[in-house]
Amino acid sequence: MLTCRVIPCLDTTDGRVVKGVRFQHLRDAGAPVELAARYEGEGADELVLLDVTATTSSRGHALDTVRAIRRVLAIPLTVGGGIRGVADAVAVLEAGADKVAVNTAAYRDPALITALAERFGAQCVTLSIDAAAAGDDWMVVVRAGTENTLRSVVDWARTGEALGAGEILLTSMDRDGTRSGYHLALLQSVASQVGLPVVASGGARTPQDMIAAIAAGADAVLAASMFHDGDTTIAETKQALRSAGVAVRL
């Protein structure tokens, strides 16, 4: 049977891994290639690489980092940040990505999702959605959290699926970097409304947070701070998941 994926996320800018809190106050967290190799060795199921300042500084994704990681990495690599059109997607795929994650550009021009899916297949297109709580609902935020669209997250996720996306990377901006656990109600509402795999992101601190996210419907769990800061290793995390009855690859 299909196992749950544990996915470390490297947020990068200027060739370094960084991590912030609620998308702000970025601090250095290491060198991307070294971290990528270490995480694969520890049992990471996939790696996500997000250039977090590409969109707000109006430049494309840093391709050198993608190439350097690809040389050493034998697990899937999803690359996002600054993908504005099909040409940008081709560039990151040629540099070594296996999937592209689109966020702001897809929101502005949803036809981009369809164009990417037709060319590369749905399994190659991750729709990255950043969510901000608003009462009992969640709104889509874009441009690295700087712009609230006031569009319902569930509605956008369903639209993305209809347009051809192959996966939803769902980040709670309110929980990002706070280590207060994933936003379970957000996960539940999206995972129950789409047929696509859903990746939980934002707030992980412990393997227990991941077990809760999987129980809420997530197919994969993503974390950054928890692994970068050495709270726990991916190997320990996956052991804990298995002990709790979650199917993982060890």
């Binding site: 299909l2 996939e46 197919d219």
Partner: peptide, 24 residues
């Protein structure tokens, strides 16, 4: 089930001496 299938699945070969061995 979730479609697409994205992730690691366990593979079981029908012959023991094949190129494909059991694993994820």
């Amino acid at each position: 089930v979730r479609v697409p299938q994205l992730g690691w699945n366990s593979v079981t070969p029908t012959r023991a001496d094949g190129v494909v061995q059991p694993g994820h």
